[in-house]
Design a protein around this nucleic acid. Structure first.
Lengths: 333, 333
DNA sequence: TTTGACTGCGCAACCGATTGTGCAAAAGCG
DNA sequence: CGCTTTTGCACAATCGGTTGCGCAGTCAAA
């Protein structure tokens, strides 16, 4: 029950704690016999060091906090898997927190992590985050912080993301190359950086193909399905409804597709959907969204973890890095 | 950068560390003025206690390890969400580990958690786990441990699960009541407790309805999609192929359905599928599995977390609890 | 005025490790 | 054989807190 300590080992061997400590670390100044005795007894008593004590002494916990909006979104669970794989192999553990896209919760999560004493933090920002004070606080305390996917480029922290603008451009261009010109954008809230980037890509593609930008084809949502329903109806109610919809992510495409289907439209014939995520379960759909952008969340997570490990190793010669993971447009049909 | 400590506060106030400590804890034996001074200075200097030091002293880390097979399975990410909600509110943090249904990894994960000094552990066993030595070790060390979903009933730990046998019984009965008699079972490996329970429910239902048990309708898989494909083909190749398949979970149903579709069968007409999980994205399918068993993972996780908190609070008067979450059969069409 | 309780605070041990330093004894050297 | 170096180990400080206990000083009751 009560863990056995170095003190106990020392007492049984009639030696001192420091000798036990050094023996277990194979310190050269400990004699062979003593070393072997200590190690043997440690093994026999199933000694295992108290990590908390080591943490206190070493001023590090080998814990890394990870904050994401929703664990239940495949993108994030895959990213965390990538993070965990790297961190586990480097001897770190993942302390998990979900922000649920809520600013308050995100702030609480970050504060809990700082208080708890993590060695570093990896964050994908919530859509509700309108303020960066908690991140500034983390930086002020000198705790290494790395962003991924939903990043804050204006902060001095390293970050990993995909070039949303470019990916959006390619996605919209795919539609244009199919001869579709009436393309709507079903976007996220424009408080989100990534919404703006989607818009940019959309605009760029239209411009390059000399298609006039029609503002009534651009809708923003709060990422909730109700708002998606509402905005989709608005699009389809237009006098000249869109031939294709570029949606924020696959979940949004799917919700919008439901509406389209209810209205008797045939997916990938009367109307085409393209979006981010490349959700794996779309393979089970008879009519999947036309195309989707794979962002390689596992790789993003792994890369973010690697960056963080670098900073944690030598926080002093910190160099901000901005890593862009190349996304891939997957055409499904 | 360097965190400010109680020693620093004490020095600045010309008092002792113990007084500072007590003042911050509102100890009654500290005078009002001194207390206010300490608190004021602490606030001014943005003092925050070193959690590691407190952990060492208190012999507790306020960390709870959670080990699940796959974070990317919706069931588990929802369960973890339930766990996190409860634990966060009680002041604990979640340290996450995935076993990937691999015994070695599960064992490593458990060992890492023990070494790291968590106050308790919540586990859903991997399908590859053929040995309980790591759990025995946890118990031997006196670390509170609670199982959920994939539990080990033979161990003295509390656990939360759904009555798989009963749920399976209901699922099969649903098919029988539709007049279907040739029902196949596409099960998981029979090293898994829950596979056996599914079998039991299946057998019970057939028995009650006086349908003779036909062993060729019973297949076990390793939960991988390739094996699912193989076994589904075998079933459909039978002289008298099944009219319905009761599959391990929705993912397996979906994979099997692909095969059925390829063979020209019409889902929910030529062949019916029923399984565990009630995956949310099935709502996007034109032809979803006929029915699915909702196991309320969020509630299971939350309950497991609550049980664990109880044990952590008073480990001495530990009483094993076995909580059965009532599942619900959801008919989709 | 004496006694006893109470108030306000500091000393020091403690949690379980790591690590700088000092001191013997053994070994190496001329 | 005497002197230096090396070897082998223990002492004690330290990480940053918590907490039992003791000791003055204050104040009221006897």
């Amino acid at each position: 029950m009560s863990q056995i300590t170095m003190k106990e080992l020392a007492k049984r061997l009639g030696t001192s704690v420091s000798t036990v400590s050094r023996a277990l670390q194979n310190h050269p100044r400990i004699g062979l016999k003593m070393r072997e005795d200590v190690i043997a007894l440690a093994k026999e008593l199933n000694y295992s060091p108290n990590t908390t004590a080591i943490n206190l002494k070493k001023q590090s916990t080998k814990n890394v906090g990870v904050v994401v909006p929703w664990l239940t979104e495949q993108f994030f669970s895959m990213a965390i898997t990538g993070i965990e794989d790297i961190l586990f192999e480097k001897g770190y553990r993942v302390v998990l927190q979900q922000s649920r896209d809520d600013f308050e919760r995100e702030e609480q999560a970050i504060q809990a992590l700082m208080k708890h004493g993590v060695d570093g933090i990896i964050v994908s920002m919530g859509s509700g985050t309108y303020n960066h004070r908690h991140f500034l606080e983390v930086n002020r305390k000198g705790i290494p912080l790395v962003f991924f996917d939903r990043v804050v480029k204006s902060l001095p922290n390293s970050c990993v993301y995909t070039d949303i603008t470019q990916a959006s451009f390619e996605a919209v261009e795919l539609l244009l190359n199919k001869g579709l010109t009436k393309i709507a954008l079903l976007n996220g809230p424009n408080t989100m950086q990534s919404s703006n980037e989607r818009l940019m890509g959309y605009v760029n593609a239209l411009k390059l193909h000399n298609i006039e930008l029609n503002p009534i084809y651009i809708k923003t949502t709060d990422l909730g399905f109700e708002d998606t329903f509402k905005k989709t109806h608005e699009l389809l109610d237009l006098a000249v409804p869109p031939q294709a919809i570029f949606a924020f992510h696959d979940y949004m495409s799917l919700d919008a597709m439901q509406i389209a289907k209810e209205r008797g439209l045939i997916i990938n014939q009367d109307i085409f959907f393209v979006s981010f995520s490349n959700l794996s379960f779309c393979k089970y759909l008879e009519k999947p969204p036309f195309a989707s952008i794979e962002q390689f969340p596992y790789e993003m997570g792994a890369k973010a973890a690697n960056l963080l490990v670098e900073v944690m190793k030598k926080p002093d010669d910190y160099v901000r890095e901005e890593v862009i993971i190349r996304s891939k447009l997957i055409v499904r049909i």
